[in-house]
């Protein structure tokens, strides 16, 4: 049976590397909130995914 949720994390963008670890998706380390938002927007357009905010300085790009 296929996995019930087809959602995949395509990329992780963070200002704080201690908040993430390992996993299948590439992690992008950025310096500021501004850069965080900009890089997230670029990646979401490139990957055709949606940007989600985990509210701890980590953004994820999800393919829906």
């Amino acid at each position: 049976m296929p996995h019930p949720s087809p959602e995949i994390i395509l990329a992780v963008i963070t200002t704080d590397l201690t908040r993430v670890s390992g996993g299948g998706a590439p992690i992008f380390r950025v310096e500021s909130q501004d850069e965080l938002e900009r890089v997230s927007l670029y990646l979401s357009r490139i990957l055709e995914g949606a940007i989600h905010d985990l509210e701890n300085g980590v953004y994820v790009i999800i393919g829906h």
């Binding site: 938002e37 997230s40 927007l41 979401s44 949606a50 940007i51 989600h52 905010d53 509210e55 953004y59």
Partner: peptide, 20 residues
């Protein structure tokens, strides 16, 4: 509610960017 889009207390989705 932070990044969560709510309609009358019903959660709909998480929107990452403040501009959006």
């Amino acid at each position: 509610k932070e990044s969560l889009l709510m309609v009358e207390g019903i959660f709909l989705m998480n929107v990452g960017l403040p501009a959006h």
